[in-house]
Amino acid sequence: MSTALAPASSPFAFARPYLAFARTSFLNLLAYRARYFVGILTYFFNATVWYYIWRALFHEKGDGATLGGFTFPQMLTYVATGWALRSFYFNEVDRELASQVREGRLAMTLIKPVDIQAMTLSQALGESAFRLVLFTVPIGALLALVYPVLPPASPAAFGLFLLSGLLSALLVGAINFCVGLVAIRTTSILGVLRAKYLVLELLSGLLVPVAFFPEPARKILVWLPFLHMNDTPGRIWLGLATGADAARALALQAGWTVALLLLGRVLWNATARRIEVQGG
């Protein structure tokens, strides 16, 4: 019960409706058992493709070689943490927003006494909390069991990785909220969202670490928010970003999250005005 978490009289009373939303999305997800088991396998398969691709590439280079500053075990670990992270931060906030618009439910949401961005974000975090337990941990364990994944570089690195991972989830929630609001202006929403996945998988460093990009692209990428989805936590785990480096990366990650939340707010205000004028 949400009341147990935040009694009405508590200073957290304002959070009650959001907790209820988080809980609802959690329950909805649990209902989909088939997708659950297939979902786990899919993450495993995806990491597996990349295991083989990297193995072949490192094999070309000769054993013990480094590519883009990674040894093979490091690269493999980067892949494993990458897919495990994706299983954590993944949400369909944008698709949900889009279907609300398509079914004309957004106008109804407008009249509820809640902040839509906070509601959407709590849904995303509720989903992530659920995914952590049911996807991320089992997938991580499975990958570590099957492939020679490296442990975190140090206890500190692990702590920072957790922090960075949490920020990833917030960041992706913020990004998807913006993407959803942009996508609903087209009628090919699903096409736009599908393109988003492919583009973000490239720009987040999930598939290829930033070191592999040509110099000019790299310079641009480090000033974009997307690497903070995957590359930042991945490098922290491996100990490739420590001390001041890690702190700087985390600060940038947090900064981007705040910036994108603000952008989402601006976009939402524009959308709400449009809906009030045209109907949702």
Binding site: R23, F26, L27, L30, A31, R33, Y36
Partner: peptide, 14 residues
């Protein structure tokens, strides 16, 4: 029949 609540949903998984 779906059992209510979190425990119900967990049970429904199986």
């Amino acid at each position: 029949r779906k059992s209510p609540g979190l425990a119900g949903a967990l049970k429904g998984l199986f």
